[in-house]
């Protein structure tokens, strides 16, 4: 068993090799990681100020996964995400103000304040939640892909979930169905090594998660989830293959959550040195360093991108602050769809 002190999970070596993108796209990836980071830092602060309540799960440290992945998908693709989905929603095009307003519980939120941090939805962005039952989104993703397969739309459904979901029956049922019916699903496992506070090797008899997906005959690959380039390349290749009708793919993004599981987590289950070691592999500064070394970024540009992100956050907070509370008279709205058959 894991020792209670010391580093149980060492961070991988930093990414090497040239960044295979031009300056513009490289800076887009960096900008989007910064946007997620600044949005979430502000969210944590606003949680402390009691502006945001309920559960708040931060993605800080894992930004390379959503950023690399979502830039490899098309606007027509379907996204099914978890309760740690601020970044996915943001990069899917949900305005930051509407995300912040949702966390405030305001009517202007992307789910009219009915969902909160864990349930961000956007029909135009084809973002099907914000699902807060672990592995609950997987069967839904399989069904979306089934519809696309039957209708011949050419869409791909990308389903994000954590390592903890792999222990759920829903994972196994879903991967089996997707493989059996050769559906266009990209299973994106964000393996941050802990299911809430239980380490992977404390709950999985087979900690190699790709082996589980591979047992269903699904192509399964492990990817460095701290490297936005590795993520982007893997998802781009996987999407091409899936869209060509070659069946579902499972990608395991090895990543790390720098912050607590939620705002109620004393982090008794991992050593501080481990967190510090992984922070040295933070996706934003390692990518920035690579870009600088290649002459695709200088410090002034970095600061400008960061300032832009900060300004977007400020405006999002202003938007949320100015938002309205939905009248209590509308409480029962949207339990059922208006206009159903009598």
């Amino acid at each position: 068993m894991r020792q209670s002190k010391g580093i149980a999970h060492h961070a991988p070596p930093p990414p090497t090799g040239p960044v295979p993108y031009d300056q513009e796209f490289s800076q887009v990836l960096l900008r989007d990681m910064l946007r997620i980071r600044r949005l979430e830092e502000k969210s944590a602060e606003l949680y402390g100020a009691a502006k945001i309540r309920g559960f708040l799960h931060l993605y800080i440290g894992e930004e390379a996964v959503a950023t690399g992945a979502l830039h490899a998908l098309t606007p027509e693709d379907n996204i099914v995400a978890t309760y740690r989905e601020h970044g996915h929603a943001l990069l899917r095009g949900v305005p930051m103000g509407r995300i912040m307003a949702e966390m405030y519980g305001k009517k202007e939120g992307c789910a009219r304040g009915r969902g909160g941090s864990m349930h961000l939805f956007d029909a135009d962005a084809r973002l099907f939640g914000g699902n807060a039952i672990v592995a609950g989104g997987l069967p839904v993703a399989v069904g979306l892909a089934l519809a696309d397969s039957m209708r011949g739309t050419g869409r791909v459904t990308a389903c994000f979930f954590g390592d903890g979901a792999v222990a759920e029956g829903a994972f196994h049922e879903s991967v089996n169905l997707a493989a059996l019916w050769q559906l266009p699903v990209l299973f994106c496992c964000e393996n941050n090594l802990y299911a809430m506070g239980t380490a992977l090797e404390c709950y999985e008899s087979q900690p190699d998660l790709t082996a589980k997906a591979a047992s269903y005959g699904v192509k399964a690959l492990a990817v460095d989830g701290m490297d936005v380039v590795a993520v982007h390349e893997a998802v781009k290749a996987a999407r091409t293959r899936i869209a060509a009708g070659q069946g579902p793919i499972f990608l395991e993004f090895k990543t790390y959550r720098f912050r607590a599981h939620s705002m109620f987590d004393a982090e008794l289950y991992r050593h501080r040195d481990e967190v510090e070691e992984w922070k040295t592999r933070g996706p934003i500064h390692t990518f920035s360093a690579r870009l600088k070394a290649e002459g695709k970024l200088d410090e002034a540009q970095f600061l400008a991108l960061d300032r832009e992100a900060e300004q977007e956050v400020e405006q999002a907070v202003e938007f949320a602050e100015a938002g309205e509370w939905e009248p209590v008279g509308d409480l029962l709205k949207d339990v059922y769809t208006p206009g159903g058959p009598a």
Partner: peptide, 14 residues
């Protein structure tokens, strides 16, 4: 669990 969920997804998918 899987195929009822898949039914939900297929309904969402048109």
């Amino acid at each position: 669990l899987g195929f009822v969920g898949a039914g939900i997804g297929a309904a969402l998918g048109g």
